[in-house]
């Protein structure tokens, strides 16, 4: 492989890795995928180092003398979200590359498609979050009225959450504001409709905010020995959960002091 091809292989791998990290993949998956890709592209001498918010890749041409002709890329991945669909698409791509069904040109085209792949319609996502909230409220012991209210509240605050998630606001604040809003709406329902269990409505409605992806990935990273990445994600999960707790807590504190609940 000459220097130009090496550069291209590293660039494609770096792009793949950053898509995976941005979508919330665990470190072992990212490193495995990049290893498969580099080997399938025919790069023999390379090194990969990945943490939750960055990828370091370096490779050298076969005929280059020791310490010469290296090509290195550093990719920063500032923000993670959870888009498990993209992880699945990249997984399929890496399988195709390994099976020899896809070369570098094909890979670049497929990556372009994956980056532009559509999420579900906003209303479908909102509806899904609402239905999940309602179902959780029931599972945790709420009545059907509680479940219905949790679904309505889940729908209304999730609109705000999707908007806030796009901005650069800190996770603590985003989740705090959403927690505050959902508690506010729940207290309103509690006052207006008799027989509503305030706790069951709130518990159902907070479930879409729970940092499941961050927590599960953190544990899997730590289990795989990637302690730095696992710690970063664990802090992320704790900050998110604290944000929810602070938002809900402060609202309830205010209303308790006002003797409304």
């Amino acid at each position: 492989m000459n220097g130009k091809e090496i550069k291209r292989a590293v660039d494609i791998s770096a792009r793949t890795g950053s898509i995976l990290l941005r979508s919330g993949a665990d470190i072992t998956r990212v490193e495995d995928t990049l290893n498969h890709m580099m080997r399938s592209f025919g790069v023999k001498k390379y090194d990969i180092f990945t943490i939750t918010n960055g990828i370091f890749l370096s490779a050298s041409a076969d005929d280059a003398p020791e310490g010469m002709g290296d090509y290195t890329r550093i990719c920063e991945v500032p923000k993670n979200s959870s888009d498990l669909g993209k992880i699945d698409l990249v997984n399929t791509l890496s399988r195709d590359i390994e099976a020899g069904k896809c070369d570098m040109d094909g890979a670049e085209k497929r990556l372009e498609e994956i980056e532009n792949s559509k999420k579900y319609n906003v209303f479908v996502s909102l509806g899904a979050a609402a239905v999940a909230s309602g179902a959780f409220s029931y599972l945790f012991g709420g009545s059907f009225v509680d479940a219905l209210l949790a679904a309505l509240i889940g729908f209304s605050y999730y609109i705000l959450f999707i908007q806030l998630d796009k901005t650069k606001l800190s996770k603590l604040l985003t989740n705090g504001i959403c927690g505050c809003l959902l508690a506010l709406l729940s207290v309103a329902c509690f006052r207006l409709i008799p027989g509503v269990n305030l706790d069951k409505v709130i518990i159902g409605a907070i479930m879409p905010l729970i940092p499941g992806v961050a927590f599960v990935n953190s544990v899997r990273d730590i289990a795989a020995g990637d302690y730095i990445s696992g710690t970063i994600r664990m802090i992320d999960a704790i900050v998110t959960a604290s944000g929810i707790a602070i938002g809900v807590g402060v609202t309830i504190l205010v209303f308790t002091r006002l003797s409304v609940i």
Partner: peptide
């Protein structure tokens, strides 16, 4: 990937109610 199947299902076990009661 395992994550695709694991993450949505494990949320049902997430301690959402315990977090709420702690804050409350």
């Amino acid at each position: 990937p395992v994550a695709v199947l694991l993450i949505p299902g494990i949320i049902t076990l997430a301690p959402g109610s315990a977090i709420y009661y702690t804050a409350y």
